[in-house]
Design a binder for these strands. Structure first.
Lengths: 84, 84
DNA sequence: GCTCGATGTCGTCGCTCGTTGACATCTCGT
DNA sequence: ACGAGATGTCAACGAGCGACGACATCGAGC
């Protein structure tokens, strides 16, 4: 899923955490942060530190993929896709 | 590209910035941060703030995609994929 | 009603991220 | 060699992240 802001990332983190049957405390321990941090991160805190976020995602079996955005729709036309 | 740590992300940021023909100062202005921040981010500063990182990536036409990791190779077997 | 676990909120505080400014280094083009 | 722009480094400072502890709320089970 493409994430453009911290809120979407927080939602993903929460969902993935629950899918793994983990509590906030367990995730906090796995990432080595406080439970408060997990609450804030899941709530979409935009100022969370990058390394902690990456660690948290890995802890719930998620990885970050950085892909080129294509503001130009020329490529979409080539691929026969319609615009959003 | 899958990014597991801040260093890889910094490299991507730098490459994308140059591909767009932007200077560090121009990127800093676009993201509304100091030039010092861009230098640190490209160097792989792991403690950069999440929102600034996301803004910087968007400024160079990159988007973040969060995908499920599959430590278990059972899925690969199902899909008939080879490992490694 | 009561207990227990999970989740969220509210202060307080230390630490450090990000900023500003100045300066050094390097690479261009002339 | 010279000048201009891009990049990197250093020091000092304010603001806010993340930690910690205490407490409130909610749901499940007896």
């Amino acid at each position: 899923m493409i994430v453009a802001n911290a809120e979407q990332l927080g939602s993903l983190l929460r969902r993935a955490r629950k899918d793994k049957g983990m509590t906030q405390a367990q995730l906090a321990a796995a990432v080595d942060v406080s439970r408060q941090w997990v609450i804030a991160a899941e709530a979409g805190a935009p100022t969370a530190r990058l390394d902690l976020v990456l660690d948290a995602l890995r802890a719930v079996d998620l990885v970050v993929d950085v892909v080129p955005d294509e503001p130009d729709d020329a490529l979409d036309a080539v691929l026969g896709r319609a615009r959003g």
